[in-house]
Design a binder for these strands. Structure first.
Length: 260
DNA sequence: ATGTCACTTTACAAGTGA
């Protein structure tokens, strides 16, 4: 089984590349963030042509998440109790048999000092409280998506430059650790302890070309999921302008493989 | 830090969010 979280930054702009990902990597499930489309305009037909059904929680212009899969989920729910930003479509949960997947697009936070940064911290607290009180961590649980937080120094191209900056503050990283302390492992790190493994490069300033990346797109899994996880990698090539039809997202897909 | 991108509006440019 293969599961791929991907921040697409508009599913309509990324449709050809999503279809290509389907053909290239054959993910059974893709968890999308920032679909940026109202539900009545979601491209169900184009995805059905490559064998995907889509569970969607979208809004126009901002945010929006979707879980698309070859086999339809048994159960889907949207949002989470205690969300400090009600009305923003950022979290959805799908159950596939014994496996539950939470797909999350965490508040960006803009910059330290901006009110949005305080919202981000409150959001992370509320999200962790909800995950801890809603799910059994002894069961198979995945929490994945765009966390907008780089967990540690290996996850930023220049830790000194990023120290104290939004996406890499101690306050954010402490909150991600608190989520992991519920009993969720960073699945990529089980296979790749090395630094320089990034999932996001800003569109501006030629960041990709210069190697100015961050790893903020994470796949966390409970112990029963971690045991089944045989590989996690990031499809860095997908970030290249030349990698396929249309322009790239500023995020690359994470690709995780599990024993059946 | 900022060599961009996507979306929206009463729209043919500029603001917003990332």
């Amino acid at each position: 089984m293969r599961i791929s979280p991907w921040h697409v930054n508009s599913i309509r702009q990324r449709l050809a590349r999503l279809v290509a990902l389907r053909e290239r990597e054959r993910p059974d499930i893709v968890c999308l963030q920032e679909t940026k489309v109202a539900d009545d305009l979601f491209p169900h037909d184009a995805l059905a042509e490559v064998g995907y059904t889509a569970a969607i929680y979208g809004q126009r212009t901002y945010n929006g998440v979707a879980i698309i899969s070859a086999k339809a989920p048994d159960e889907v729910s949207c949002g989470f109790d205690g969300d400090p930003t009600p009305g923003s479509c950022r979290v959805m949960t799908a159950r596939f048999g014994d496996l539950t997947i939470v797909n999350a697009y965490i508040v960006n936070g803009k910059e330290v000092g901006d009110p949005a940064y305080e919202v981000k911290l409150a959001w992370l607290d509320a999200f962790t409280t909800w995950v801890g009180s809603t799910f059994d961590l002894d069961e198979q649980l995945i929490v994945c998506g765009d966390f907008n937080v780089a967990p540690d120094e290996r996850d930023v191209h220049d830790p000194k430059r990023w120290a104290g900056k939004n996406l890499f503050t101690e306050a954010e990283r402490t909150r991600v650790r608190a989520l992991m302390d519920l009993g969720l492992a960073d699945l990529l790190r089980l296979h790749h302890p090395e630094d320089g493994v990034f999932s996001y490069w800003d569109y501006r300033a030629g960041a990709f070309h210069r190697g100015w990346g961050l790893r903020i797109d994470l796949m966390l899994g409970s112990e029963p999921v971690a045991r089944r996880c045989t590989e996690v990698r990031i499809d860095r090539n997908e970030r290249k302008p030349t990698a396929g039809e249309g322009a790239p997202s500023d995020h690359a897909p994470v690709i995780a493989t599990f024993d059946d």
